[in-house]
Amino acid sequence: MTAELAIDVSGLTKIYGGRAVVEGIDLQVPRGKIYGFVGANGSGKTTTIRMLCGLIKPDRGGGTCLGHDLLTESATIKAHLGYMTQKFSYWDDLSIRENLAFVADIFGLDRAKERVDTALERLGLTARAEQLVGTLSGGWRQRLALSAATLHEPEMLLLDEPTSGVDPKSRLEFWDEIHHLAADGITVLVSTHYMDETARCHEIIFMSEGHIITSGTAANVVAHAGLMTWAVTGGDLVALMEKLKPLSGVDTVAAFGDNLHVSGTDGAALENAIAPYKAEKIHQWREIPPTMEDVFIHYMAKTKGDG
């Protein structure tokens, strides 16, 4: 309760088969904040989250979670942590109520029945409480998982891609719920592949190939990338994309529906490269502030080039 930081770790490293899949993670998360984890598939988000909740032991590094030592007090940490796994992992062959009751018993909660009833009510699942979880749709499963993970009123939530495969309206509601929880003082670490969700985090952590490559508020991360982006509309955009890609100064070209985002870190070089195409007047060119999506693609392209 006393520690200022919910998460305070340094140098977290996990090695699988001789390869460091996560290396040297330094992370400080203040209490009551929502931190977003973003990064390509296999960049080490799940592995980091698992180390934070004591599911796997880091090979190097350490620190504290909720003021308790990660390596020696994982049992205490687990009691105050809610964890939602990337793959839905409650019991399919138990009913909604049975799953919640099980969680209540394991955490030794008082007024268990009352809490389960309240949770069911908040979920709007009271009428379907006896339905087997295996028969729920994806969105409902996620809601149930969140509800189960918060049943014991944890101090911190680790959510691994909680909104994957969930429709936009449900996603919105899900995030509202997360903000409510944060307002109550709960720290939330959430991984996501939806760039629009980064805007709803207090800060984001950008992971790539097992390292944190940048972090900060969404605006800061975008600014820090130092990207210049042009949006192009009209004409044959597919042909244009192929022509632009090899040019020096053009780092990434990405199609977004009816427009093309052309980005580069060296503004002058980028302008030089695109000047001839602007002159053709076939397309409409407009400089725009880069989005998180552009930044994400930019970082991913960069690591691919390095590797």
Binding site: C53, L55, A75, K78, T85, K87, F88, S89, D92, I106
Partner: peptide, 14 residues
């Protein structure tokens, strides 16, 4: 196999 082990392990149970 079903992944529920992860949930079980993340809970405070000996």
């Amino acid at each position: 196999e079903r992944g529920t082990m992860e949930t079980l392990l993340a809970m405070p149970v000996h």
